[in-house]
């Protein structure tokens, strides 16, 4: 009877639905199960993240080489500790600097890296020492006024 065809149709429908979930998970939310073996982790401390969020991009010369994995607050120094996953194929020198940048005028925040001249490379779980927090407009204005009054 055509109950076989019915079952095939329904099976295809349910599988298409599951596939849609998988497509959304990988393509839309950037879910990546294999992330751990293809990347290594670096830490960086910032005084102010001003809107940087988890899974923000990490870029080098405009090329995305990794993502922010987690953000925590160091309760001793009161600075933000950002954990980044970086592509294994991109070695970074120990004097690499990290700064928080904004894409476009209103775009999202991301971490921009610039490589130094050192011969040695950062290893897994190392920390980037040279960081620059994002520029906060209010602080700039405050600094300006402060310097004028002196």
């Amino acid at each position: 009877m055509n109950s076989k065809r019915l079952e095939i149709g329904v099976g295809a429908f349910v599988m298409a639905g599951m596939l849609a979930l998988v497509v959304l998970a990988f393509n839309a939310s950037g879910f990546n199960f294999a992330r751990d073996d293809r990347s290594y982790f670096l830490y960086a401390r910032f005084e102010n993240l001003s809107g940087l969020s988890e899974r923000a991009k990490v870029s080098l010369s405009g090329v995305i080489i990794g993502r922010v994995v987690s953000i925590e607050l160091d309760t001793e120094d009161y600075v933000a500790v950002v954990k980044m996953a970086i592509d294994k194929n991109v070695p970074l020198s120990t004097d690499t600097s990290a700064s928080i940048l904004t894409a476009g005028l209103l775009g999202e925040k991301y971490i921009g890296l610039s490589v130094g001249a050192d011969e040695e490379h950062l290893m897994n779980a190392d920390e980037i020492a040279d960081t620059q927090s994002s520029i906060v407009l209010e602080e700039l204005i405050g600094q300006f006024l402060f310097s004028r009054s002196e």
Binding site: N27, A28, S29, F31
Partner: peptide
């Protein structure tokens, strides 16, 4: 194309949105 998807992946959360 890269920035269309990258921007999306940067903000969409699997649990929070999907």
């Amino acid at each position: 194309e890269g920035s269309y998807w990258a921007n999306m992946q940067g903000s969409v959360e699997f649990y929070g949105d999907i």
